[in-house]
Amino acid sequence: MTQQPAHKDGHCSCHSGDESPMHPRPYRVLEVSRELSDTFSMSLTPEDGSSVIFEPGQFNMLYVFGVGEVPISISGDPSNRSVLVHTTRAVGSVSAALNEMKPGATVGVRGPYGSAWPLEPAVGMDLVFVAGGIGMAPLRPAIYQAMAERHKYGNIAVLYGARTPEDILFAKELQRWRSRFDIDVQVTVDRATGHWPGRVGLVTNLVALSGFDPDNAVAYTCGPEVMMRHVVNALHDRGVPYDRVYLSMERNMKCAVGFCGHCQWGNQFVCRDGPVFRYDKIVDALNTREL
């Protein structure tokens, strides 16, 4: 893998040499908050008082006693060393059980795992974040980090598409960012409901409209695969080359440590080589059906 090295000091402090990488560590639930009809955020803190260290784009395996374990991307602020935030949809048995948890309950956590959104190669350049639906969750830590180091970058564009106005994730935060003068936030919905006065259409349309400089921009995209394929093409049409586009993949995972084989995608393990990939390295894989 020649991908941008994702891990710096402190990654995965949970595993010493002899301990099984399959053992979760207990974290206490601080808060479970509803984001959308089927989407919630969960704030956790390590029971042993250790620091929360991760890089934007990484994920954890969350374990609910007696129910099971699922990979969930980290959606919180990487500068917050005491609170770990995940945002997900309650669609399976484990995520539904997480959704039901009350403050004070214990959740098992393994991680963080996987590659990160590489912001380092974008210093001095424009940043373009393109998210679809729940895909905003794994991108948010990178946006936080970029905002915290605002002076390092040129223009920052956050382009977001949701199915309906009711499906806009982190709407208040998007509004807050939009009120700033140093970031371009654009939101569109596939289908307008109620009194939606905003833009209607695909998120790819926003790529064509946004004022970033394609010759000097790095793009980060996360959402359904079909959306990401179109986003990559729209970025390419604007002149952003494939080697300056990063995307995050989702695959079935049972272990996150390269043992279970489920997340294989061509010659890659999404848990280890991903979930964040540079597009030019996975063009064939992304365009091969049922790989």
């Binding site: 891990h7 990654h11 995965c12 002899d18 099984s20 990488p21 280890r272 080589d273």
Partner: peptide, 13 residues
């Protein structure tokens, strides 16, 4: 060797 920082783990069992 295992390198957790690179996602390379060992199965102790």
């Amino acid at each position: 060797e295992s390198h957790p920082e690179k996602g390379i783990f060992s199965d102790p069992g």
